[in-house]
Amino acid sequence: MSNFIDEIVELNENKVIEMLKFKLDNNEDPLAIMEEIKEAMKGIGERFEKKEYFLPDLIMSGEILRQLFEMLSPKLKETGASEKKKGKVLLGTVAGDIHDIGKDVVKFMLDANGFDVLDLGVDVSADKFVDSMKDYKPQVLALSGFLTLAFDSMKEIIQKIKDAGLRKSIKIMIGGGTVDERIVEYVGADAYGESAVDAVNLVKEWV
């Protein structure tokens, strides 16, 4: 039998699902299976970093992982185990902008690297970011934007975070289509990431 982890990394959808069924039928330890899946996610993330995988591959892997988790989660719940994450990142596309591609890739890569990510979606207001920061208590805030209007939305969001007295407790990174290092100072962020790999590296550095 071929390696479960490799088959996931290779994105062989049908094969992988068949293999998981077999494992579950044979009462393999769900926690051990989960570890294998995590290992595979890391492998997928590495291929993305090496520019061997791109969006179609990430989307396909997301689709495979979703199915695997669906099959596995009832068994995992029975074990009652919960996993420790490395740190918390709050993420969203800023007010006025409904683009989600870049944000979703960043979420995937942070997930794959073991971080806990709360994704607020698109067109997220400053107030919503501030409220979520209070509830979720992330160490890192990741602001995404594709349109040039996002510059001002980011600025406003960070201003409101300052006004709420929360700026010192958080590191803020920005990214997206038109964002570049020139924007960091303007909006009052800590750093800019060119790609999802940069985003992961920044979080690793900060957390």
Binding site: E13, P56, I59, M60, E63, I101
Partner: peptide, 11 residues
């Protein structure tokens, strides 16, 4: 959709 078209590359 982007998601659909990219999954289609595989499926």
């Amino acid at each position: 959709g982007m998601r659909g078209s990219m999954l289609d590359m595989y499926r």
